[in-house]
Write a protein that binds this DNA or RNA. Structure first.
Lengths: 344, 344
DNA sequence: GTTGTTGGGTTTATCGTTAAACCACAACCC
DNA sequence: GGGTTGTGGTTTAACGATAAACCCAACAAC
């Protein structure tokens, strides 16, 4: 293992150029370089050119530790996620890792096993230096409005949540409309005995998705027997249990609308095991359009939620808020898409 | 959006306690607190107690930006990954995000589209401040040994690679043995016409996996017609194409050994589409034991690679190397496990 | 009795960047 | 012509932690 020759004090960080060297090269003070770089303060058009040239020539990259020390750059985002095995969580973690890297942010991912742990986890994140919080359901609604959360004094953004919140950014799709559209698609394709594997009803997004289904069914005069709605926990295993019960019903459903892809995959599983022919005997639809949707057989008709874009957007909002010290909560609605595949 | 009341200069980072406050509280100098905290320098047992008490009482957490500025703590890990859609990559990204967070490290994830981009990507990571590199195949072998890589002067670790390397840490499983064991399992279960969807042969781990298969077949006197081996690219789509060709062979294989779960899932897909009964007509096995393995039907018999543990181990090795300035490359062999499910 | 040595600290300087205060000079304003 | 207002910068003082140099008492060695 090779390591660089090190000066007594520091491990010589790969030929780092400091702002002073740039300043000397451009014949100005360090402060002016800083001003040009950040577009703050005052300088003439001509100095600007000189400084920029020096920056390029030397390949200057500001030292983020120093910037952060003086409080100029927020740098750490705490991500609070539910500790369930789901494709969606993995995808968010991966997207957040990449998006944070692009923005030079440090991601601090932390799992909270239950809603009760949310506050403790948030506190722990803050204590270890988080400047802002990125939340996933159900932690958005758990924390929103609580005095203890407010006391943390951290900016927060929630992705994939159901509705705007007064004290944090929200980046989401219209879950209800998406779910309604999906259900209508099934009805249009001739399905009549539609069953539902809902998500946990303490997740605001799950509630919306279930509402969307109900609306579509009602609009078409189809009744939804309550034994055709089962609440899962977004995990594959809970989907398995739910599907078992649904496919053991006296009157067999001809379609299952699941609230995420993992549970939809579970429904496929159970259907396969029972020897049903898919999608003839049973249509199954998912939600999220994770990688899973295209890996299972038959591939899932599902709702695409643009996870990468939503994650990136949430980070940008947080960065803006921290830098500009804005106080306006914002709600960003991203587009969803119905992706038709072979499962319905 | 609530933001904390801010002193003129800084956004008041959530009640941060500095080392000086701890020092005052304990009645010693800041330096002594630093020494106690890091177990460096000298101090009496009694001062130690006092300082530790003060640290706990005040909830002191060292400011990592300051530490880093003086060069005491390395903080940034550059993760170089191949930009293919695969469950394995997502899982590694997620695991790395969590493991980095636990260690207070900043993860800088960067995709390189091809082997040729590896060096540029590594340079870019270094320029943006990476202290060490975490590599995924094929970038380990692409970079290892090259003078340009050595010139970077960065410690590196590679996970899920095939063999020890002289200039970086390696954390891996015995790919060949695992693959051999898997093939032997199939033989023991009566399969005779075994086909292979190999991984890209510029990945050292893929090479090993293929070798393992061959060894097992040879050991049992089974010949492997060359049209029964197809090289995929670890993607689901490439698996699809490979499976199509294999299942169009005059003599139909009775088993397919795939080099990862995504390609195995693709084989299941094609088999379903052709109306084969699984696993009666065809056994399929995967590799990695990603979440996908349990989501598809039938669930995949596969090799478990402990991704979380391997990622964590690699980070620990890198941290040790940076802190202690060790020069010894190390090779860690983790245990794999054959996970039998219904697909064979 | 001068010269080490060691335990238990303290002081000082420094990392790279930026906020805030300051400065020199020019133009404008009754 | 004294005062205000701009423009285009520079200087200074942090931010928090730590490496290195220094200090001092107590004790040992010769």
């Amino acid at each position: 293992m090779r390591r660089p020759a090190s000066s007594p004090r520091r491990p010589r960080e790969g030929g780092k150029v400091t702002i002073k060297e740039v300043a000397a090269h451009a014949g100005v003070s360090a402060m002016t370089v800083s001003n040009v770089f950040n577009d703050t303060g005052k300088f003439s058009r001509e100095t600007r050119e000189r400084v920029l040239a020096a920056i390029n020539a030397l390949g200057y990259v500001p030292n983020s530790a120093a910037r952060r020390l003086v409080g100029a750059t927020p740098a750490r985002i705490g991500l609070l996620y539910a500790g369930v095995d789901s494709m969606f969580i993995d995808a968010v973690l991966a997207a957040a890792a990449v998006a944070s890297a692009e923005r030079g942010l440090q991601l601090m991912a932390r799992k909270a096993a239950s809603a009760g742990e949310a506050l403790d986890a948030a506190r722990a994140l803050q204590r270890s230096g988080a400047d802002a919080l990125l939340l996933l359901p159900p932690f958005d609604t758990v924390l929103s409005g609580s005095a203890a959360f407010r006391a943390l004094g951290l900016a927060a953004a929630s992705i994939a949540t159901a509705a705007p919140l007064p004290d944090m950014f929200t980046v989401r799709i219209d879950n209800r409309a998406a779910s309604r559209a999906m259900t209508e698609r099934l009805i249009a394709r001739g399905r009549r005995r539609i069953a539902i594997i809902a998500g946990p009803q303490d997740h605001s997004d799950s509630v919306e998705r279930l509402l969307g289904c109900r609306e579509a069914l009602e609009a078409h005069g189809l009744d939804l027997a309550e034994d055709r709605v089962i609440e899962g926990r977004f995990t594959f295993e809970s989907g398995l249990a739910a599907a078992e019960r649904l496919l053991a019903l006296a009157e067999l459903p001809d379609a299952i609308v699941a609230a995420n892809d993992d549970m939809a995959a579970a429904a496929l599983w159970v259907a396969h095991r029972r020897g049903l022919s898919l999608p003839r005997d049973l249509a199954v639809t998912g939600f999220d359009d994770t990688l899973l949707a295209t890996r299972v057989w038959p591939p899932l008709t599902t709702v695409r939620q643009p996870i990468d874009r939503m994650t990136a957007r949430a980070l940008d909002l947080l960065l803006d808020a921290l830098r500009r010290r804005t106080d306006e909560p914002a709600d960003v609605l991203e587009d969803y898409a119905l992706v038709g595949r072979a499962s319905d």
